[in-house]
């Protein structure tokens, strides 16, 4: 290498090193992983863009990789995801080691249990994935009869996130089978960012009802609640067909209700609202609202749900909701699948 070229490179590294470089030592998992790959493959620089707004920039200086830009929320978040992923891989390896010590009979039984669990779990996106955007994301799922007919699903588009909570006809295995059909249609229908939410959901119902051919033709049905959030501006839209939501902003809860009949008649409006950091969203199936109290005299209802959410502490955890809900329910058994998706922006 010529002296002038070498000076140039040293000059570049000095330009970026002093004012912005926040980490010189390869200490965290993300930097170590990136460093190893960049050094092994002789890559000079890597930039990761998040929704084309924020970014992380790594640059190699001879045998050292430095994070030149990235001391931001996205960096910490990516770091947490990477650590969680590594733990998951370790946990799977441990599970596999545990299976090796079982007898043939135990293995068959274990296999059947695992199959049932896998089918059940395959319907849900892991809650940890939702935490990529939300400060907190939790799911309360209590089927009336396992595996159940409630579901939630979400999809990230560039800049926007769509979240859906659904309640399909029936419980147990029947509910699950209908859920699988509905989810297949949903995933196909929402593969691209929806333009007009009210039209998209009406079109979806048309597709669902077009599938009905048998005599029990009202079985293939569901109630839905949809929110779409612009991750840059935090502007959100809600529409539903029976799956309602409660929004708590500044400590005050408000119910957003919907009905399928109104939606199918074109009378269900989209609700637009502005979110801010710390806001809480609760989307829930009707099994929650239809829960009777301990005396078996009164349903929770949407007003009761608003009151319950108002009772929760600030920055609530799922356990706080479950404690309040259990106190309302007392000893009265549930009559339906109960699903509540709890999100903190």
């Amino acid at each position: 290498m010529k002296a002038s070229e070498e000076d140039n490179i040293i000059g570049k590294s000095q330009q970026v090193k002093e004012p912005v470089n926040s980490s010189d030592s390869q200490t965290d998992d993300l930097l170590q992983k990136v460093s190893a790959e960049m050094l092994a493959k002789q890559i000079d620089s890597v930039t990761l863009y998040f929704d084309d707004s924020d970014f992380i920039y790594f640059k190699r200086f001879n045998d050292k990789v430095k994070q030149v830009h990235g001391g931001n929320e996205e960096y910490n978040h990516l770091q947490r995801l990477l650590t969680a992923k590594e733990k998951e891989v370790e946990s799977r390896a441990e599970d596999q080691n545990g299976l090796e010590s079982l007898t043939t009979g135990e293995l068959v039984e274990e296999g059947l249990t695992m199959d049932a669990t896998l089918i059940h779990q395959s319907m849900f996106t892991p809650v940890s994935t939702l935490e990529e955007f939300f400060t907190q994301a939790n799911i309360h799922f209590e089927p009336f009869e396992a595996p159940g007919g409630d579901f939630y699903w979400f999809k990230n588009y560039p800049h926007k996130t769509l979240i859906i909570v659904g309640d399909c006809t029936g419980h147990g295995m029947q509910g699950t089978m209908i859920t699988m059909s509905i989810l297949t249609l949903l995933k196909q229908h929402f593969r691209l960012l929806p333009d007009l939410l009210s039209k998209e959901i009406s079109d979806l119902y048309t597709e669902i009802y077009n599938l009905r051919e048998g005599s029990n033709n009202d079985l293939l049905d569901c109630e839905l609640g949809l929110i779409i959030i612009d991750r840059r501006t935090l502007v959100a839209e809600y529409i539903g067909s029976g799956v309602n939501m409660v929004l708590r902003q500044g400590g005050k809860a408000e119910a957003f209700t919907s009905r399928k009949a109104k939606l199918l008649n074109g009378k269900q409006d989209v609700r637009n609202f502005q979110l801010t950091r710390g806001d809480e969203i609760y989307m829930f199936s009707d099994g929650i609202m239809d829960q009777f109290n301990d005396e078996n005299t009164r349903k929770l209802g949407s007003k009761g749900m608003v009151e319950l959410v108002n009772e929760l502490p600030m920055k609530p955890k799922l356990e706080d909701f479950e404690k309040e809900f259990a106190a309302f329910r007392g000893h009265t058994p549930s009559l339906d699948d109960q699903t509540l998706l709890m999100l903190t922006i």
């Binding site: 000079d44 929704d51 978040h77 995801l81 990529e132 991750r231």
Partner: peptide, 18 residues
């Protein structure tokens, strides 16, 4: 670095130089 897309869906673009 392509596995980062699967790990974090907010990663929308990866740029690198060799």
């Amino acid at each position: 670095f392509g596995s980062l897309f699967d790990l974090a869906s907010r990663v929308t673009r990866i740029v690198f130089e060799r």
